[in-house]
Design a protein around this nucleic acid. Structure first.
Length: 303
DNA sequence: ATGGACACCTCTTACGCGCA
DNA sequence: TGCGCGTAAGAGGTGTCCAT
């Protein structure tokens, strides 16, 4: 999907090590809306706030664990209620996905990681994972060097891949890996929704496009995408509205109609349900974040 | 701009069936 | 056995109006 949100690109210097470790507190100039080609394991150790991954916004707290794929923009903003600085808020491991793919080619035993890497294209939250074990593995990898650094990291990846509840976050690339004839027809509909979200979208129209009855389409769509059709359409529209709220000064009413909603009350209702805040509150929050990114860049430039 | 109330309508889902 | 269809009931989404 297209997204108008300006994203800061983080370029990581080439290194002899395959892993990059970061620990930071809050506030920290490194905490900003950005993307990079590396995958990122992100463990929140302290504080509560909002997670921004692609077009997703959700809550995080101590023990929240996320995995973001290549070039997926992200940030974690601690709530304003936490006015006191936090010494250690985040533990981060960044790694090159291509290295893992090479590993899987050499050792098929690691192929179980493939599904998780594909799901990470849209971001994953590992709901209910044991944070102490995760933190211990990150610490073990962080404190080691050479090959000893890699083993706890691989154990962590395998532990994450085996975790049952992996919640996909952004609508981006949700339909990435569908291949059967039925899945391809559903994927065509998904593409159409993503590209034409502002147009009228009914199950009847979508079913016609997929060559199915509405009831069959409804079942197939949920099987393939994990979403109900109406929920998916609204999610795409809300995601696009987020970008417009962030990047333009258009009125909420204008954006509501631009993304395909037929009335403002319905738009507000869905926006609040999906984002946990009103459109105007979202705009305020998102722009405060942009200001933080600008300040961080200004600090780095001055140094 | 936001959110509540309400009536209406669309969509989802379960079930049974036929077809390949 | 798997897939798709038709039907019907209930759930949930939508549009409108209005108050704040």
């Amino acid at each position: 999907m297209t997204n108008n949100i300006p994203v800061e690109l983080e370029v990581l210097a080439p290194r002899s090590e395959s892993l990059r470790f970061l620990k930071h507190g809050w506030p920290d100039p490194l905490c900003r809306w950005h993307s990079h080609k590396e995958c990122e394991i992100h463990l929140l150790v302290a504080s509560h706030g909002k997670a921004f991954v692609g077009d997703y916004i959700g809550d995080f707290g101590p023990g929240s664990l996320f995995l973001t794929g290549p070039h997926l923009p992200h940030n974690w903003i601690t709530d304003d209620a936490y006015s006191d600085p936090v010494g250690l808020r985040d533990m981060v491991i960044q790694f090159d996905q291509d290295r893992l793919l090479t590993l899987m080619q050499a050792f098929p035993e690691f192929n179980s990681l493939m599904a998780m890497l594909e799901q990470a294209q849209s971001g994953i939250e590992f709901v209910g994972i044991d944070p102490e074990h995760v933190q211990a593995l990150i610490e073990a990898s962080f404190d080691a060097s050479g090959t000893a650094q890699v083993m706890p990291f691989l154990e962590l990846l395998l532990h994450m891949s085996r975790h049952a509840e992996k919640r996909s976050l952004s609508v981006q690339k949700l339909y990435h890996n569908e291949r059967s004839a039925k899945q391809l027809r559903i994927t065509e509909v998904v593409d159409h929704v993503v590209k034409n979200y502002a147009e009228d979208m009914s199950v009847q129209m979508a079913a016609d496009m997929a060559g199915m009855s509405p009831a069959t389409f409804s079942r197939s769509f949920q099987t393939v995408t994990g979403n109900r059709f109406v929920e998916f359409v609204n999610r795409v529209r809300i995601g696009q509205a987020c970008g417009m709220l962030y990047a333009t000064d258009d009125q909420v009413t204008t954006i509501c109609f631009q993304v395909g909603f037929q009335n403002l009350a319905n738009f507000n209702r869905h926006f609040l349900a999906k984002k946990g805040m009103t459109p105007s509150a979202y705009r305020e929050t998102a722009r405060r974040e942009l200001t933080r990114a600008d300040l961080a860049m200004a600090v780095e430039t001055a140094q």
